[in-house]
Amino acid sequence: MKTGGQVDLKRTQELFWELITAPEGVRAAIDSLSRRGLVDEPSLNSLFTGDQGLPAVERLDIYANMYFYRLLDCLAEDFPKTLAAVGPARFHNLVTDYLLRHPSEHPSLRYLGQRLPQFIATHPLLEAFPHLADLARLEWARADVFDAPDVQPLSRDVLARLPQDRAGDARFTLIPAFALLRFDHEVVSFWRKLDERAGGHAGTAAASGAAIHGGGSGNAAREAPDPGASPSGEVPEPPSLPAPARRSAAARVWRRDFIVYHCSLDEEEARCLDLVLAGESIGRICQQLAAGRSLVKATARAGRMMQGWLEDGILAEVALNETTR
């Protein structure tokens, strides 16, 4: 490789990247490049420093390990239940596959896991763990609302000030730190069981003061786990829990006072939240609830539901013609 000039700097960086991101290590990357007639080991040794104590390949392997394990750590932090569900060895392989398809393209590690749930939905692991994409979607939603914009939740007083005769025309706005999810599996209860097994203390609404994405780990180097930690070099896998039932389910995820919560929803409440998200009026929501109910029962159901939304702090505003806070 020629030296000097930006073209060569670019080629050098592309080669460096290819070497340190190869899933089977630098040696395998060199063999692959050599077979393609691009770079062989002697030319690599003329580019990078190395000596008997620490050859160039081993020096580059330090970077290869740091690359993979930093990103693995980040995904393990954002998807702890997904990791617990499949165990460290399968999660390791899943992350290897994921990073090949979706290397980080953002300056912040916060977005690294954004496409993991969809990726799992197309991954062979889904055969053995059909609920895994749903579980990962729940975890990503929790990570996503953690740093969504702050909004003061709607107060009961503001809602009470709505003119009675026009309340049906009013529309709610939800807080930005909110997500409505639908699943094909009962992953909310499965999440709770995993949390309990890990020593968590989640109540009805699973709470967590989640962390900074990527662990806020700064620029510290990352290492592969100590191979002596277990005979296989991997953390022993915990006994698996029974898989969650395949059944349509819904959940909402939200943040209040910097704590992230989620809970199961029945389909009726999920449909009502769909209407809120679509900007429909309170009257339209009540119509939804009136189907098959007496007016008294429908009103009581609407009252309980909205009371829950108020108490959980998922409503941001209620508006008639102009914004009312």
Partner: peptide, 28 residues
Amino acid sequence: DHLCWTGVGGRNAHDLLPLPYTEAALDH
């Protein structure tokens, strides 16, 4: 920040990768 590069081709290694200390790299 750091005197290094962290990625190329729109991808980010999230690591502090070394530069060659050449005149061309210096100008860059």
